[in-house]
């Protein structure tokens, strides 16, 4: 049933990366349970503009759960309480009247706050830049059907490739580790015959890069898996580990 609810929001405000942040309290009244979480923030922002106050900055773009741009920590949960859902797809019907909602940015050493809830996730691009690809130039590719790929393998690769790069795995990991992100990319590419060729060099480079960037170490807490809006499985981390061991001890790659 659609109804209106009143909420108290405690939102992290931070003017710039090098400034001190603090929580500020906002009232969001008469919020329809039919709208999305980000639309609720839109309403709060519209009110702030009319009051002449600086709006709450938050990243978002596609608002249909695929671009990976949105994300904040809602009452201790990245992307909010609903499983398999990005923040933009979270709707207010999952909240109750007079609830206090605490909204924080994703936190990890490599995710510097740019403003309020906006963080810099360039480190994830850095990881892809570090061999998160197959080295093919445009042109000269063989026919798409030249190498048959078992359906099961293609599906597994697709499972891994469905990562949207939102960074919620890092945000939810008690250790701020990016191993689900790395594992998903390594799995996606090393499962496919096209990507196998460079598998050893790729896994070594990506793991090293993740360490150098300052992400934490994976200790198999599984928080990433339950938080991931695309429900990417930690099987991919196991595959990453396996690929890493293979690359270390069975290949000439360093």
């Amino acid at each position: 049933m659609i109804k209106n609810i009143n909420l108290t929001l405690k939102i992290w405000r931070q003017d710039a990366p090098d400034k001190e942040g603090r929580f500020e309290t906002y009232e969001a009244n008469e919020i329809s349970t039919d709208i999305s979480f980000l639309e609720m923030l839109d309403i709060v922002n519209e009110k702030l503009i009319i009051e002449g106050k600086d709006i709450i900055a938050f990243d978002n773009d596609c608002r249909e759960g695929i671009c990976g741009m949105c994300g904040a920590v809602i009452n201790g949960r990245p992307h909010g309480p609903q499983r398999g859902t990005t923040l933009c797809q979270l709707h207010m019907r999952h909240f109750s009247d007079n609830e206090v909602i605490i909204i924080e940015p994703f936190r990890a050493a490599p995710f510097k706050v740019i403003k309020d809830l906006v963080v810099d996730r360039g480190s994830l691009d850095e990881l892809i830049k570090t061999y998160g690809y197959i080295s093919v130039n445009t042109g000269g590719a063989p026919d798409g059907n030249a190498i048959p790929i078992p359906e099961e393998i293609a599906e597994k690769a697709m499972d891994a490739a469905s990562c949207i790069g939102c960074g919620a795995c890092v945000a939810s990991c008690p250790n701020a580790s990016a191993m689900l992100f790395v594992g998903a990319k390594v799995s996606h590419l090393s499962l496919l015959p096209q990507g196998k060729i460079e598998a050893a060099r790729r896994v070594l480079a990506m793991v090293k890069k993740a360490d150098n960037i300052g992400f934490g170490n994976c200790t198999n807490e599984k928080e990433c898996e339950v938080t991931c809006p695309k429900q990417v499985s930690i099987e991919n981390i196991a595959r990453l580990n396996r690929e890493f061991i293979k690359a270390c001890f069975c290949s000439t790659a360093k």
Binding site: R77, I102, R107, P174, N175, G216, E221, C224, T227
Partner: peptide
């Protein structure tokens, strides 16, 4: 590991809730 993992999140969350993985 404990040292590095603590360092990887210098600012802690105000609220920390498990999603059911731990």
């Amino acid at each position: 590991l404990f040292y590095e993992n603590t360092k990887a999140r210098p600012i802690k969350y105000a609220i920390k809730v498990s999603g059911g993985g731990r």
